[in-house]
């Protein structure tokens, strides 16, 4: 037993201090952002689509990550002032700029099952009937388990 004790102590010390993970418990070597795509599905919404107030936006996108997905957020805000976002790649025809009266504001977090490297998100988002019509931005923020985030902005219009 006396001979095994030093070996046991050595193993304990190595286990306690040799972890390559940071204190947040995540993989510090993950340098790849998660991906938002329409691979294998019909992605929705996409740029320049028009929706009617009181109806639904059938959100449908595929999320993938090289290690593990985390969670995602959907946020919708008006674009009555014609601002742009870094990921906006398509120029849609815009209505004349205006001041918001009752703009639609939507902001909700969604969980992704633990351990997922791929996840197909399918959510029906009801559009309130009494909000301002006009141009809107539909924002998707996808986070992976290590904290990396990808932003996808889509320009839509409400009638």
């Amino acid at each position: 037993m006396k001979q095994k004790l030093p070996i046991l102590m050595l193993l304990c010390a190595l286990c306690a201090c040799s972890s390559s993970e940071d204190s947040t418990g995540d993989n510090p070597k993950d340098m790849t952002d998660p991906v938002i795509s329409g691979e294998g599905i019909t992605a929705n919404p996409i740029d320049c689509q028009v929706y009617r107030r009181g109806e639904l936006i059938p959100f449908n996108y595929v999320f993938t990550d090289n290690v593990e997905l985390g969670a995602f957020n959907i946020e919708i805000h008006d674009n009555f002032d014609h601002h742009t976002h870094g990921t906006t790649s398509v120029d849609c025809e815009l209505e004349p700029d205006k001041s918001p009266v009752a703009p639609w504001r939507y902001n909700r977090d969604f969980e992704i099952p633990q351990g997922s490297k791929s996840y197909t998100a399918r959510i029906d988002i009801p559009i309130p009937a009494d909000v301002d019509a006009g141009d809107y931005h539909f924002m998707v923020r996808l986070t992976d388990h290590s904290g990396r985030q990808t932003l996808h902005a889509v320009a839509i219009k409400l009638q």
Partner: peptide, 9 residues
């Protein structure tokens, strides 16, 4: 919210 907390950026 998940877009702001627990993220690197």
């Amino acid at each position: 919210g998940v877009a702001y907390i627990g993220v690197l950026e």
